[in-house]
Design a binder for these strands. Structure first.
Lengths: 142, 142
DNA sequence: GGTCAATTATTGACACGTCAACTAATATAA
DNA sequence: TTATATTAGTTGACGTGTCAATAATTGACC
C-alpha cells in the first residue's frame, strides 16, 4: 500500500518533470512557444475565427490570447477586424505570410516529435495515447 | 505515414494539455504550487542542504530557487545560513513548523494523485510509468 | 602575495500564465 | 424606452520560469 502510493506519485512527478523539460527544448528546436504555435495552428485550420472561439479551442486564458494576438499582429502574421454586425466580436485570421510560417513551424514540430518517439512501436504509442487520454478525463472530472 | 505523424503529435499534445490543466487543479487542491512543494519535499528528506544541491535536485533555475526560498524564509518555513567554511554556499533547512506543513501538503498531494489514478490497474500504472520514463530519457538526450 | 578563473547566489529583463477589474457593445425585461 | 444583465475583449497585478549580468568568495598558478 505504501509502495503503491509512492509509485503513483512517481508517475505524476515524472509527467510534470517531463513536460517541464520538454517545453524549453521544443521552443528552441522550433523557434516558437508551444502555446503560440497552438494558436497559430488553430487559425490555420479555422480560416477566420472569433477570439472567443479561439480561446476556447486552445484553452488559454482570454488575457493571454489577447496578448499573443497583439504581438502576432505586430509581427505581420495575423490580421484582426471587428464583426460589423456585432462590434463585441473580433475576427482573426492569418496573413499569407503567416500561413507559410505556420506550415514551417509545424514541420519543425513534427520533426521534434518524431525524434522524441523514435524508438516507440505503434502498439506502445497507442497504449500511451490511451493511458494519457484516460488520465486527462480523470483530471477534467475533478 | 501521414496518419502516423498525426497520432504522434496527439500524444505530445495531450501530455502538454494534460499537464497544463492538472497544474492549477493540483494547486487549488493542495494549496501550494507543484514546484514549491518539490523544493519543500527535497528539504524534508535532505535535512540540511546547499541551495546549489537543491537546485540540481528539483531542476529549476537558480533564480527561481532563490526567490522561492526567500519567500519561504519570510513565511517562516525555512531558515538559511552561510557555510562558515565557504561563504559562497548557503545551507537551507526546514523549521519545525515547516516540517509539519510539508507533511500536510504531501498528504494532500497523495489524495490528489490517488483520485486521478483511481481507475488504473497496477499493470496499467506500471506500463504508464515505463513509457513516461522512456519518453523522458529521449527528451533528455536531445 | 597578486592576478585570473571557477563557483554560488542574487538581481534584472523578459515571456507566459492566471485572476480580477474594467470598457464597450448588445440583449433582455420592466 | 430605459435599466439591468450578459458577453467580448483589454488591461493591471501578480506568480513563476528562463537567460544574462553582476557581486562575493574561493582556488590555482605565477
Amino acid at each position: 500500500m505504501e509502495r503503491n502510493g509512492r509509485d503513483q506519485e512517481l508517475i505524476i512527478q515524472r509527467m510534470f518533470e517531463l513536460t517541464k523539460r520538454a517545453m524549453p527544448k521544443f521552443e528552441r528546436c522550433t523557434g516558437i512557444s508551444q502555446s503560440r504555435l497552438e494558436i497559430l495552428r488553430e487559425l490555420f485550420v479555422s480560416e477566420e475565427i472569433t477570439q472567443r472561439e479561439l480561446q476556447k479551442k486552445v484553452n488559454i486564458d482570454h488575457a493571454a490570447v489577447t496578448r499573443h494576438l497583439k504581438q502576432l499582429e505586430e509581427s505581420g502574421m495575423v490580421i484582426r477586424r471587428k464583426n460589423p454586425d456585432d462590434n463585441r466580436f473580433t475576427y482573426v485570421q492569418l496573413t499569407d505570410e503567416g500561413k507559410q510560417r505556420v506550415a514551417a513551424y509545424c514541420e519543425e514540430k513534427q520533426r521534434f516529435i518524431s525524434s522524441v518517439l523514435n524508438d516507440f512501436s505503434e502498439e506502445e504509442k497507442s497504449a500511451l495515447l490511451d493511458l494519457l487520454t484516460r488520465l486527462q478525463k480523470n483530471i477534467e472530472e475533478m
